[in-house]
């Protein structure tokens, strides 16, 4: 007797929720096409000048800085994540729970607190000159490592049961098993972990805010700084560009690593 009516009502509600979710992003994107330096919506006139400005030196520099930072973060997170995930997944050893808690800790602690802790610590031990790129790299690896460790650990856990013993019975030494069986099978997980770390680093605000310095600021901090001076369609264009980069990355590689698993992972700090 309730029939399909509740379902139709639900569909309507869901449509409204999508509107709420995607509306602001669509509005931001369209505002960037305004003729004048104003935030009219719907846009008045049509111009690509703000998009051009988004790739001007003022924005290109932090964009490239962010890309470099995120790429290095991803590489280091994978390099450190593989042995950690291996130790967690394949061995029992005294102190394992502690090491695991420390590794995953940055997921639980607010990133902002990790940021001020690093700021204070580096200053107190006289490494204040590291502020900027090096401190950012250290901080980003700390906060991105849990993502890559978790992703790699999941791919190790999901490995079909007996393939490693099978390889061993066929005459493969432990090293050969690692090289020909374990690592190739873990590769999608490692790639997913790297994409994850990249996206997380590229999007970070809460940590970067405290340890960036003029000239060595990631894009997010640059946008935040610019907001204090007011609004321009340029900023809308820059925002959209910065949003498209992680999206493109996942669209490119998501197929290999399973976009679903990928997104399910993202439940840490915002």
């Amino acid at each position: 007797m309730t029939g399909r009516l509740p379902w139709s009502a639900l569909k309507l509600a869901v449509a409204c929720i999508y509107l709420f979710m995607l509306g602001p992003i669509v509005i931001t994107a369209s505002v960037a096409f305004n003729q004048d330096n104003r935030s009219y919506f719907p846009p008045r006139g049509f111009s690509l000048q703000w998009w051009e400005a988004a790739f001007g030196p003022q924005w290109l520099q932090p964009l490239l800085f962010s890309l470099e930072l995120a790429t290095l973060t991803a590489l280091i997170s994978a390099a450190a994540g593989v042995p950690l995930a291996f130790a967690f997944q394949r061995y029992r050893f005294p102190g394992k729970a502690l090491v695991r808690a420390i590794t995953l800790g940055p997921l639980i602690l607010p990133t902002l607190v990790t940021g001020i802790a690093l700021l204070q610590f580096l200053s107190l031990i006289g490494l204040g000159r590291w502020m900027g790129f090096w401190a950012l790299l250290i901080g980003h690896v700390v906060i991105c490592l849990p993502f890559s460790v978790r992703t790699i650990a999941i791919s190790l856990a999901a490995m079909p049961g007996n393939v490693e013993p099978a390889a061993s019975s066929l005459g493969a030494t432990p090293f050969a098993v690692l090289r020909h069986v374990t690592l190739p099978l873990a590769a999608p997980g490692v790639l997913a972990g790297m994409i994850f770390a990249f996206v997380h680093s590229f999007d970070d605000v809460n940590l970067s805010l405290f340890i960036a310095r003029p000239g060595e600021r990631p894009l997010t901090v640059a946008i935040l700084g610019f907001l204090e001076f007011g609004f321009a369609p340029t900023l809308a264009a820059v925002s959209i560009v910065s949003m498209l980069i992680p999206l493109a990355l996942v669209a490119l590689f998501g197929r290999f690593v399973g976009i679903g698993d990928f997104l399910y992972q993202e439940t840490g700090n915002g």
Partner: peptide, 8 residues
């Protein structure tokens, strides 16, 4: 092996 353990 029971699950064959073929290398996927």
């Amino acid at each position: 092996f029971q699950d064959y353990a073929l290398f996927p």
